[in-house]
Amino acid sequence: MKKFINDPADVVAEALAGLAAAHPDDLRVDVSEQYIARADAPRGGKVALVSGGGSGHEPLHGGFVGTGMLDAACPGEVFTSPVPDQILAATKAVDGGAGVVHVVKNYTGDVMNFQLAAELAADEGIAVETVLVDDDVAVENSTWTAGRRGTGATLLVEKIAGARAEEGGKLAEVAAIGREVNTASASFAYALTAGTTPAAGRPGFDLPEDEIEVGVGIHGEPGRRREKLRPARELVRSALDAILEAKPVNDGDQVIVLVNGLGGTPLLELYLVYGEVATVLAERGVRVARRLVGNYVTSLDMAGMSLTVTRVTDEMIRLWDAPVRTPGLRWGA
């Protein structure tokens, strides 16, 4: 294993320190409680958004803390859920009196720990709403979950709900638009290679040179099957078939498309994939209103990609276009 690290046990803490040093005007990091918050939080009267999960998926979640998205993020150890005390500390740190929305990917540990933190926050008088993200249509009831996994749509939920909160939306309104985005989203992923965790020092699973994992999870969980590597256009059509079967999109509908790298896939290939996606959706009469291509919800250094398609309303597009200023996503601000 070749990685730019010091001690594997210190990777997350040292990365947090580096994030804070790189964005001193926008973020603050509480090293002892292990959360990242907006530098201007709490903001009185504003609904706050808090998310989190295991590290190794950067820029998710810490890279999406800032104006127009999250107020705080709780990074656990690599591929490990944050603990309830950590989530509670972040929730209290950014609560401005209007309540807090927890954006939670559907993984058993995340769900349990955020639920407990929400109960503890309620005991202290903080109103919490939870938005559960379960967009991965590849498998259900996987190694890590009961039901579908939360993946690429997390970014869209955080951006659109974050914009609604930024403009003064009430707690119920912010949670409602987040749930609406999740319901309208479907994702599907492929892995070409496994990611390598710093602690293990070796790939998380074995994959022959000529095979791919179809429907892989962001922690390297098994997908639907393994198969021989095929041309990108065939893989894209297969993924879109699964996505559009699960969440149909009709002729004339508008969508946001995320072509997401899993950490080790060059942009050259991701843009090629987007071109194939655009061709297939155009054939079906689907209008791509907005698109995003790059590494946003990763799995360490895994070579692979995921597709997310979200059927959107004009209001969702307006909120997507609203200014955002975070380390991982920035426009209009």
Rank of each mutant, 00 (worst) to 15 (best):
R230W: 01
I212N: 02
T265G: 08
A232D: 15
L281V: 06
H219D: 03
G215C: 03
P231Q: 01
V249P: 10
K247N: 05
L270I: 09
N250P: 09
P248T: 02
Q254A: 13
N260P: 07
R233W: 00
E211K: 10
E245M: 02
P208I: 12
E213C: 14
L244K: 03
H219N: 05
P231R: 00
V255P: 01
R230F: 01
A232Q: 15
N260A: 15
D253K: 02
E227V: 04
G285L: 04
A282C: 10
H219E: 06
A278P: 04
N250D: 09
E234C: 04
Y271V: 12
G217T: 07
T265M: 11
G263Y: 10
L270M: 13
E283R: 05
I218L: 07
A232I: 11
T279V: 08
H219W: 02
P222Y: 04
V273R: 14
I256K: 07
P231S: 02
V257N: 09
I218F: 02
V216A: 02
I243Y: 13
G275S: 12
P208C: 00
V255H: 12
N250H: 14
I218H: 13
P208W: 05
G264D: 03
L235K: 14
L229I: 15
G220W: 02
L272N: 14
Y274V: 06
D253C: 08
G264R: 01
A246N: 00
N260L: 05
G263F: 06
R225Y: 15
L258D: 06
E276L: 11
G285Q: 08
I256L: 10
K228W: 04
S238C: 08
G275Q: 07
L244Q: 00
Y274D: 09
L272F: 09
G220F: 13
G215W: 01
R226Q: 05
G285M: 00
L270F: 04
P266E: 12
G220H: 04
A278E: 15
E269P: 07
D253F: 02
A278K: 11
E283I: 00
Y274F: 09
I218D: 06
L268D: 07
Y271D: 12
V277D: 01
L267H: 11
P266N: 09
A282G: 07
V259L: 08
V236Y: 01
N260W: 12
G220E: 10
R230K: 11
G275E: 06
N260T: 14
P248V: 01
L281M: 11
E245A: 10
E213Q: 07
K228Q: 15
G261H: 15
G215H: 01
H219P: 04
V255A: 06
A246P: 14
P222L: 07
E209V: 15
L258S: 07
G252E: 07
V259E: 12
L244C: 06
R284Y: 06
G220T: 01
L268S: 09
Y274G: 08
V273P: 04
G264Q: 11
A239P: 10
L268Y: 14
G263K: 13
R224M: 13
K228A: 12
P266D: 11
